[in-house]
Design a protein around this nucleic acid. Structure first.
Lengths: 156, 156
DNA sequence: AACCTTTTTGCGACTCAATTGCATCTACGA
DNA sequence: TCGTAGATGCAATTGAGTCGCAAAAAGGTT
């Protein structure tokens, strides 16, 4: 699954072109890396993967990841180890995602699963939080994040 | 509400004694601080508050906070700014919480609200996530965290 | 195809929360 | 009161992430 990296490059280029922003080598490399992964990746994961095919500065990887979040191609997940992990947005691989507007549609909601043993984080597109939240009066919701911890299928 | 610190000291001492572990000045001070707050506090928040009445090393505050989490008196919340915030567990103030066993009762669930403007994080004891989660087969849940972002009553 | 302007990139230095190692001190049971 | 497991203080370290700035593209224009 990891070795699909090269095959994802054209798809990455197309998605980047669709944003109307500049298509650069670091952006293609980072996006292709995310496209080739089925779980959320830390900056370090991405940088290590990218380093197999390119020579790209750490800082650039940070900046590209942030940029991908900014143009709604990816989103970031706060881990329990104080490390951000990144994952593509559901439709990002298919269509070219939206423009830089981003910043969440009304009540953008996500669910993630993190395995306590192997530490991998997966995105649960299926699960719609949809909880019966009764916030104190005066509170308004803009975003909901559901994080589930436990054991994944492989570690169980 | 902040000034209730001194009044919380006896309660803090009692809760600590109930754990069977050592009752030390730093532990009392940190716990009394958490008892006097209605929202989650970062290490820095706690250290600053504690410093008004004691001279306690930063590292000790870190260690006491971790310890409080370990004995199930408090829990930690990962913030979007890579800073841990700490808050008492629901019943911790009343009874003496459990022994060091901890590590979550079956499917321990929490909900937190973080204000995008003032940055304060509150614990929503009322909200029970209770979502219709359909995990992929083989996955097992041990813990659920719901994080809601938005505007609190004061910032709206 | 060479040119120009705007963005990106690379590099070094830096920030800052959190951790570690170790010597010293102390809570509390004997 | 004493002895010791456990807690604390201090200094140094880690490591993710950020900043400033000069050099290097990207992509539109001529």
């Amino acid at each position: 699954m990891k070795l699909a990296y090269l095959a994802k490059i054209p798809q990455a280029q197309a998605a980047l072109r669709a944003t109307g922003e500049r298509v650069t080598e670091p952006r293609v490399a980072v996006l292709a890396t995310l496209l080739s992964s089925d779980h959320a990746m830390s900056h370090l994961d991405v940088a290590a993967m990218v380093a197999k095919h390119h020579t790209i500065d750490r800082v650039t990887v940070y900046r590209v990841l942030d940029w991908l979040v900014g143009v709604s191609i990816a989103h970031r997940i706060a881990g329990d180890d104080r490390v951000w992990r990144f994952m593509l947005n559901p439709q990002a691989s298919a269509q070219g995602a939206g423009k830089k507007t981003a910043h969440h549609a009304p009540s953008h909601a996500h669910a993630h699963f993190t395995c306590n043993t192997c530490g991998q984080t997966f995105c649960l597109d299926k699960v719609q939080p949809k909880m019966n939240v009764k916030l104190p009066t005066g509170f308004r919701t803009t975003e909901v994040d559901l994080k589930i911890r436990g054991l994944c299928a492989e570690c169980k």
